[in-house]
Design a protein around this nucleic acid. Sequence first.
DNA 1: CTGAAAGCGCTAACAA
DNA 2: TTGTTAGCGCTTTCAG
Lengths: 353, 353
Amino acid sequence: MARRRQAVTIKHVAADAGVSLQTVSRVINDEPNVRAEMKARVQESIDRLGYHPSIAAQRMSGSRSYLILAINDRERTIADWKAREGRDWVDQMLLGGMLTCAERHYRMLIELVDTHSDHVERELGAAIAALQPDGVILTPPHSENAIITGYLAGRKIPFARIGSRQPGPGIAMTMGDSDNARLATEHLIGLGHRRIGFVAGPQDFSLANRRIAGWRAAMADADLPCDDLCERGDFGFESGRAAAAKLLDLPDPPTAMICSSDQMTLAALDLARSRELAVPADLSLVSFDNSPIVRFTDPPLTAVDQPIAATIARAVEMLIDFHENPEPEEPVVIGGELVIRGSTGAIRGRDRR
Amino acid sequence: MARRRQAVTIKHVAADAGVSLQTVSRVINDEPNVRAEMKARVQESIDRLGYHPSIAAQRMSGSRSYLILAINDRERTIADWKAREGRDWVDQMLLGGMLTCAERHYRMLIELVDTHSDHVERELGAAIAALQPDGVILTPPHSENAIITGYLAGRKIPFARIGSRQPGPGIAMTMGDSDNARLATEHLIGLGHRRIGFVAGPQDFSLANRRIAGWRAAMADADLPCDDLCERGDFGFESGRAAAAKLLDLPDPPTAMICSSDQMTLAALDLARSRELAVPADLSLVSFDNSPIVRFTDPPLTAVDQPIAATIARAVEMLIDFHENPEPEEPVVIGGELVIRGSTGAIRGRDRR
DNA sequence: CTGAAAGCGCTAACAA
DNA sequence: TTGTTAGCGCTTTCAG
């Protein structure tokens, strides 16, 4: 391998401007104690020579790496990419993360880690040691994996836990899960629904439980029963179909359903069709995620939009500024919103059944 | 900033195994001239201590950076992310690129660069200097931007040009554009169509022209005229609608159309509907891209699938192995395939018009 | 306010 | 086959 050196280094700039390396370094890092005149002279050399610092060298000398690492679940992410079903949460992460990083001269990169494996720590350790990121973003279900959070906390690497409200190390951030579920529930109640089913996500996603809580609270506020109206799925299509079937098979079935992912809602829609239930006339549906496909179904789905880009952007900012503003006591909440489309409507009664 | 040091360094391993740094380095890099026994001993220490090399240090000492940089057009990429219309080409790049990188202990990261800006060179230079990637992947329209290719060639950084067949430095790779257009055209000819329109992409994408060539060739082989049957768009919805309108307004309008992107095909579908043309009975449509949404339209779209993941995977491999296997003379072609769905059908004649 | 020296973790070149 | 030395580009001490 050819020994590839930096084209323009701090040395060239120092020589060009007739100052010491140190002064150049101070200008690059915008440190105080440099005369304006000196600073201008150095900056002029930097611009003219087209100098840009090497993050490898910056990292080596013990300062920042200018790298933020986002860690996603390997299995789920690859499955989504291969399925090509339009789930765009990785894109939304990049949108929020990359752009915010770029503003601060940082870069974000993604790493896929297998949560369920017994060598999580190896995988994570390899990534951390190799890249030395200045901050790490954990997405569910990694956000509450004690091995991962413990490892990062032990190494004193700032990290954000997306979708987690647990106390403990790391910045807890949520997209307002229980409020979102309440929003969806109240929308349906406002349309006259009394029996509102809820298809939740799996146990190992704590946000799934918070959504249930929001739904329950809204139901309780309206004096409506929740009793047997909650089923769980794993966010995937098949599980959604099974859960929706259980709810529709109830002696007193719901007239509306909230499903915790677009795929599960799609499954419910499909099931409704196969049972000749019209949506929304016989069954109203509210989805979670609001990924691109929900606008193309018939009818288009009313859905809770998760502000992924905004959340990741905020996480990046907080991680970069971590040393000035350390971890907040309370979880950071960036609330979602309900996008109303054709899959929800006023209750019509049971005549068709 | 706390001076954060590597948890376990090559020194620790060397001390633990009772050998010199160099020997450890040789084991890490799988170099020859290390006794099997020695290698095993060192490897044992590495595993036990959980050692992983720092890419910053590896890069600093003049060897590889283990980084591959994929450069995408800023404007287009951000627009796609914000539009949330299901375009998943970035995901497919990650799927092919990240997984292949991971196998080789590399990482891929994405950089957004504005082609049309006058400071392309600055932006690119900053990314290259900061990251020192071992290879760069250029996507259209960067693939044929002389400033970019010239810069990389000048710095002797291996790079791949996706969607380009031009001679010159860099590995030229295409997804078989002209063959794909031929595939689509022949499918329609096989269904009995004689007037087959083509909505092409913009001039600055050379693949747009190659697709036109493939369509023309297939038409010529079947002794069919192309004359006024080709219009250009910019891959976006509005431009597709305008182009499709021009074709449908022809004195002798086409009974089938091939559009060079899903958005343009969607526009054609929308236009057909507004003119009360049934698809495929009155107008058959073939799309390019095959992004997730085309399965959800009514009817679902017959589309050419671009093997993005496979192409990027191949690019990564070739870049990593660049020093053993230098640039091929001929462009590398990874062909797409036609996925037949409901938007194409046998010709029915003109009775409805 | 500016400069000089030391060292980060690793590999290339050379020596043994 | 193994070990030693020097240095990558930068920042952090510490002097001036």
